[in-house]
């Protein structure tokens, strides 16, 4: 698969997938696994796990990883550029042509309504994730991070670092304790 081909595949997915990075994943699967057969199904999911474990937008990470695997650094560059370009162009168009009317009363009224759907969509996304973390450990971390953010307006970076360190430490301690107990 040439770098050009990669570029166009990612450009297509980038241009026609609405609703953020996660919406792109099934489309990537259809294109790369089922249609072009360049990635095996099992390595598709391994790649997904790796991309989710690293910071950054999952769609961009995925493009970089698969692009590199298939065609080296050129492939990675072509894939990332392809996946970014449509959203970059669209947002510029919106910002240039649409947002100059933002002070108009009718426009402002429109966005007063739209903001409420953002609340609804984000709440439902958070709720869906919440349901997957109802263990004592998960609830504990959710409670602590929420109170850090809302109660003490802690910096999100501090919250992320805290959660990572806490997860690592508690699992390491648990592993040591279990190891001792089994002896």
């Amino acid at each position: 698969m040439s770098a050009w081909k990669l570029f166009f595949i990612y450009l297509k997915v980038g241009a026609f997938t609405f609703g953020g990075g996660y919406a792109m994943i099934p489309v990537f699967e259809r294109e790369l696994v089922m249609k072009h057969h360049v990635i095996k199904p099992e390595s598709f999911y391994d790649t997904l796990v790796i991309c989710q474990s690293l910071p950054g937008a999952i769609a961009v990470n995925f493009a970089a990883f698969t692009g590199y695997k298939l065609r080296g650094y050129t492939g990675a560059f072509a894939s990332v550029l392809g996946v970014i370009l449509p959203s970059f162009a669209m947002i510029l168009l919106v910002a240039v042509f649409l947002f100059r009317f933002v002070e108009e009363p009718l426009f402002e009224a429109f966005f007063k309504g739209v903001r409420l759907s953002v609340v609804a969509l984000m709440f439902l996304a958070g709720w869906k994730m919440f349901k997957r973390h109802r263990s004592g450990f998960g609830l504990f971390i959710i409670a602590i991070t929420l109170s850090m953010l809302l109660g003490f307006s802690a910096h999100p970076i501090i919250v992320v670092v805290f959660a990572g360190v806490f997860g690592y430490t508690s699992l390491t301690v648990k592993a040591v304790v279990n190891h001792d107990a089994s002896r």
Partner: peptide
């Protein structure tokens, strides 16, 4: 092990964001 701690924290981050978005919306 780091990720085990991070995943639930993402829920906290989203919920905090819902709160501040709701306050302005």
């Amino acid at each position: 092990r780091v990720l085990v701690g991070l995943r639930p924290a993402l829920v906290g981050l989203i919920m905090a964001s819902v709160f501040s978005v709701a306050t302005s919306a």
